[in-house]
Simulated scan of single mutants.
Amino acid sequence: MTDDVPSPGDSLDEVGEPVAPDHAAAEGAPAEDDMGSSSALRDMLLSTEPQKSLDEVESPYDPARGGLRRVYRGLQKMTGVEGTPALVDLVIGGVEVLTESDVLDVDQEEQADDGPNLDVVNGVCEMDRYHTAVVGDSGSGKSTYLRECHDRFPGSLVLDDTDIGGVSGRDLDNAATVRSAGEARRASASRLRWVCSDAMEEIDDARAVAHDYHERTGYPVQVIVDEAHRHLPDSEKKSSAKNNTLAAMLHEDRDKGVKVVLASQDPTDFYYPPLKQCKWLVWCGPPSTFHRGFRRYYNIDTDDLPDERFQYRVIRPTEPPRVVYEGETSEEYA
């Protein structure tokens, strides 16, 4: 009897019959691999392999990075090529595709009478997640709007080389004025006015401070740059993401918790490719004649723009552009 018992070092294949691959084979019937069977379909839809990230950052729901990528990954999982189960990927990915393509968006006119679309009130809420361009002539209320944005965003940094004023610790709660990266890192306030002679001389340090703040707290950071056309001039050499830190922030930093707000009274002077990363345009006050080129580029009709100073319109620069909110800046920030 002991002769039939394998020792710990023996292979089981050397003793007895080989194990059947499945129950059918054990009964003498040939094994089946029927892709049309209910069990095969269930296995496909509930597959969790392969564990492939969407774009290095896994997220349970993110229309900007999911969508077609997630649907594709679901198909990969179902077919076992490389691919949460496949069924979940397909459902979430489909919703993300519709969300990003605006199929699920509701226009301002379709909102209930009890108030505006809260996703875009005063450029806060939903707009907190995406880069924004603020346009307005001198005296239009643009700086007032920027001060309001700075006050309403917990975790905001204004690179102030234009003496925008009104955003120092004397004017806002939990705010401070700093003049260097060291002061910015030591500040306990969550709203900083970084006074400098040239924003682009400080932009690399400001970007590093914003990244550190997001990594330390998990909260998003808003970086405001006024008269930004001076820092993104109409030159591919000077304003490409490879050569310009501000352009690189627009292209790369939303996934790192940083939202950029660019403001200008001369938007026609911008280099437009980086500006396309802005999901929202905020137009303050009536347009001027020299805004014509910018309006034509985005196909914005003058009827969609404000008639009075200190009025603003939030525009989604789709084709055609859509006004999603209109309002007035608050007097307390003027």
Rank of each mutant, 00 (worst) to 15 (best):
P321H: 03
Y312R: 04
G115N: 08
Y312A: 07
W194V: 01
G141C: 08
S168E: 08
L41S: 07
Y271P: 02
E319S: 10
E27F: 09
G165Q: 07
C278S: 11
S288C: 13
G141I: 07
G36V: 12
N117C: 12
L118F: 10
D10H: 00
S37A: 13
H214R: 05
S330G: 12
V261C: 07
R179K: 10
S11F: 14
G155Y: 00
V209S: 01
D255E: 13
K77D: 15
T217V: 05
A31Q: 12
H229L: 04
S168K: 02
A189V: 00
R313E: 09
E148S: 12
D226T: 07
V282S: 01
H291F: 08
D137K: 10
M35H: 09
R191D: 05
P320D: 14
L46H: 09
E183M: 01
V120H: 12
S288T: 14
H214C: 03
V258L: 04
A64W: 06
D55T: 15
G166V: 05
V225G: 01
E49P: 06
A31T: 13
S168Q: 05
A206T: 00
K279N: 12
L90Q: 06
P50A: 15
K276A: 15
D10Y: 04
V195T: 12
A176W: 00
L250V: 06
R152W: 07
A24S: 14
G80Y: 11
C125D: 15
A228T: 02
W283F: 15
E100N: 08
V258S: 03
H23L: 15
M1D: 11
D137A: 15
R322S: 14
K237N: 09
